[in-house]
Design a protein around this nucleic acid. Sequence first.
DNA 1: GTTAACGCGGATAGGTGATATCCGTGATTC
DNA 2: GAATCACGGATATCACCTATCCGCGTTAAC
Lengths: 159, 159
Amino acid sequence: MKMSGGVEWAVHCCVVLSEAEGPVPAQRLAEFHGISRTYLAKHLQALSRAGIVSSTEGRVGGYVLTRPADQVSVLDIVLAVDGREQAFRCTEIRQNGPLPASQEVCRQPCGVARVMYAAEQAWRSSLKDVTVADLAASVSVDVGAGTFPALRGWLAGEG
Amino acid sequence: MKMSGGVEWAVHCCVVLSEAEGPVPAQRLAEFHGISRTYLAKHLQALSRAGIVSSTEGRVGGYVLTRPADQVSVLDIVLAVDGREQAFRCTEIRQNGPLPASQEVCRQPCGVARVMYAAEQAWRSSLKDVTVADLAASVSVDVGAGTFPALRGWLAGEG
DNA sequence: GTTAACGCGGATAGGTGATATCCGTGATTC
DNA sequence: GAATCACGGATATCACCTATCCGCGTTAAC
Ligand code: SF4
Ligand code: SF4
């Protein structure tokens, strides 16, 4: 079990965007986090396709959160970047072998699959309860209230 | 996010073992599920290392559940086969860039990481609540009570 | 109009881990 | 001693993640 590393980047970027005042170019987001610009762009495109961020093309373009930060859950970001597929994939091995399950039984997932799906649902539900706004608030508590003003200053300057 | 396909095999094998009367060779387990014998052996070895099943070598050897079926959770199997590592891995990008977080702040995981770990905990907790015995019972309900006697018959015969 | 900055999409390597197979060794039973 | 079986390592294959690059269209500033 492994989640795409891009999820971490995407979440961080969304938190930054929630505190920014205008569009932020991918270049700037990458610099701020000390990560690859070109690869981050890929993940931002995924966020864009999912409707989480909007992009402004052209000279002073960049990315902006489409919805307010308290309406973007962490689950939204994870699904956009890491894909919507379930971690557990049933290959229907119950239909193999000398004692295969009948067609009618296989209409619905068996107990094994149901347990896996339920666990995954619990996972998703947990991620759905936290929004980007919540994360921004927890960052303020963890690293201090002065962080975001400093961030805004850096985003505005150096250009 | 993707779970190893071997998990499905391993869970099915544990259910079968819980209903078997004696040691079952990997050969027989693979035949019954219509899957690769050699590759299944790998996963069974993982279960063996985790102490979930025990192997008997020699002429009439095979695999047996080490503990009673109601003391083996699905989580045990998943962790044994798929690994114990968390799906989310923090790369501490908060320490990069022009506004790095201080050393003391980074002693503990930030809000992002905490959310991810909590979700994973919910997932594991959900899997921990279901045992192999529960699964066996649900199979009986789904495909009929005559399944396991037929299974035992097949395991005993054809050899 | 020209230029520069920016997002988008595809093409393309490279690397890592999952998948799958094989063989030699040792243990057990007959 | 022969047959059966689990075990571990070595190996090959393959899919996907990671990462980079380039050309294109768009937009604002000059
Ligand atoms: S997990 Fe359930 S649905 Fe999937 S192959 Fe096994 S029996 Fe079938
Ligand atoms: S997720 Fe949290 S702990 Fe991990 S790099 Fe980001 S800020 Fe640091």
